[in-house]
Design a protein around this nucleic acid. Structure first.
Lengths: 292, 292
DNA sequence: GTTCCGCATGAATCGATAG
DNA sequence: ACTATCGATTCATGCGGAA
């Protein structure tokens, strides 16, 4: 079967209009947070954030299949000693648009940013908001089951086991052979708390989130040849993972540098590992590129 | 110095009125969650929750010292496949009352309630909302420091160039001073994610939270002989911990069974370990009991 | 082929200083 | 007064080169 990866250059509010209704199985994205990433994205002011995001979420609601899921990675920052409230306001407004706020996962960032302040500790978590169009949506829980030996053993083994699991999960298609023995014994369903470290040593680009993050949700909410969308593609983490996991993917990016970088990266993969790349512009969007 | 533990039987909305303004250093509580404990508390309907809580939070704002902190343990339940929004609405309304929403800690429940649902994983976290009256509040960060990871040992052998550069950015004296700081360091400040197990050994009552939870916040936000308040005393976890940590405490409970149970428990402690108990009713509130 | 070890960096925040 | 910039502070992780 054919696997496609489509790129759109431009503001996702506009580019999303080229996508047909009910065509996406999973949206995983991490938009620029309010007043952050100023150097790359200009930064959206806290007071304007909801207003800015709602037209986008409206399009996302349109393109998502009724059985699909939207996972939004976001966190409010501190303004004058208080947490901002724009994320809460966004959830409330998106519900009015017709979204169901199904669940809130916690991403526990094991290596959070250091620092010390007189009235505050380091922020070690972010929100992973799950939205749906319908109460009935596709969920493949067995795909993300985690090995659970007896508690005593896993506690004694400490971090070594979790590291193995994490390393192996990067393969994407399953777990490694070397530890499959004790993995097969008993598996448990995970919880709504994800413990992941940020990847901080990439030379070429800084990814918004570690590959494990989109990988986990792609496993959970899609099957092979489903379509994954990231309207804030950035360095392309979501698309890279989707492609590796044999999911069709669509990425939209407003910054030409990022867009070119990801496109080049995908072209290279195609050229070296698979068949020759076909790159062309569609009539619907002049800046659409497709890698097949 | 004298250590006091005061109990009030009744609706905390009313009983709180007996407490003077600006008299409490820390409020730690876990109110009944919406609709979840119908058997014991009668249950507050999801739609009525904010309306029900606001008169209480208004009193809490009054009795809290300007340097004090209010820690609210809460989590929205699932209604018809969606997370309820009453917690978000409550935060927004409490801000209008004058509360500052300073921080949101995450309580990661390491052994959360087992179960399986077709479209949802186990809920392994709860919110610990920190509210304050003023941007300046008491915080004793050193009291809750945690051991550093093993990485520190190798780290201290040789400081990297970037560390030296970063340290050097401070003119003159900064460099050597910083090295000595790091060498002495064997503990780190914690983050805003708390990893605690739930206690399941309580038979008589629905245990709100483990003792470590109030203990951590009492350490962090109070010193000895400060006053800790729990307006939803329940089984008295907060008061037990406060008493053990040599903090004055006040508990309010609406259910006579719980009230009597906690009072008896404290009387027993007093009788066996300290001086004889004095129990009397104050004129201000006929149902106030004091153990000194 | 393992294991060890050095190392850069990450969606941070506050308070002081400058315009 | 009010906003913008800058320096100081601080951990844990995964990568890559070395042993």
């Amino acid at each position: 079967m054919e696997l496609t990866t489509d790129f759109y250059l431009g503001d996702c509010k506009e580019q999303l209009k080229f996508l047909p209704d009910n065509s996406v199985d999973l949206i995983v994205t991490s938009p620029p947070y309010a007043d952050q990433r100023k150097n790359t994205y200009g930064g959206i002011h806290t007071d304007k954030y909801v207003e800015w995001f709602l037209p986008i979420s409206e399009q996302l609601l349109r393109v998502l299949k009724p059985t699909g899921t939207f996972v939004l990675n976001i966190k409010e920052k501190v303004v004058e000693g208080e947490r901002s409230i724009y994320v809460m306001e966004l959830i409330l407004e998106m519900r009015k648009q017709g979204w169901l706020w199904t669940e809130e996962f916690i991403w526990h960032k094991k290596n959070c940013y250091p620092g010390k302040w007189p009235n505050r500790f380091r922020d070690a978590w972010e929100r992973l908001l799950q939205f749906n169009k319908d109460k009935k949506f596709n969920m493949y829980q067995e795909e993300v089951m985690v090995p659970m030996g007896d508690w005593a053993k896993s506690r004694l083994k400490n971090l070594s086991n979790t590291d193995k699991i994490r390393d192996n999960s990067k393969v994407g298609s399953g777990f490694g052979k070397n530890i499959s023995n004790w993995l097969d014994r008993d598996k448990a369903y995970p919880t709504n708390v994800l413990h992941l470290a940020t990847e901080c040593n990439n030379k070429n680009h800084s990814a918004a989130f570690p590959e494990e993050l989109p990988e986990w949700f792609i496993k959970l909410f899609t099957k092979k040849y489903d379509t994954v969308l990231d309207p804030f593609m950035g360095s392309g983490t979501t698309l890279t993972v989707a492609n590796r996991m044999i999911r069709n993917s669509i990425g939209i990016e407003i910054m030409p540098e990022y867009f070119e970088m990801v496109k080049k990266q995908f072209n290279t993969i195609e050229l070296t590992l698979f068949e020759p790349t076909v790159e062309y512009a569609k009539t619907k969007s002049e800046r659409r590129y497709t890698v097949r």
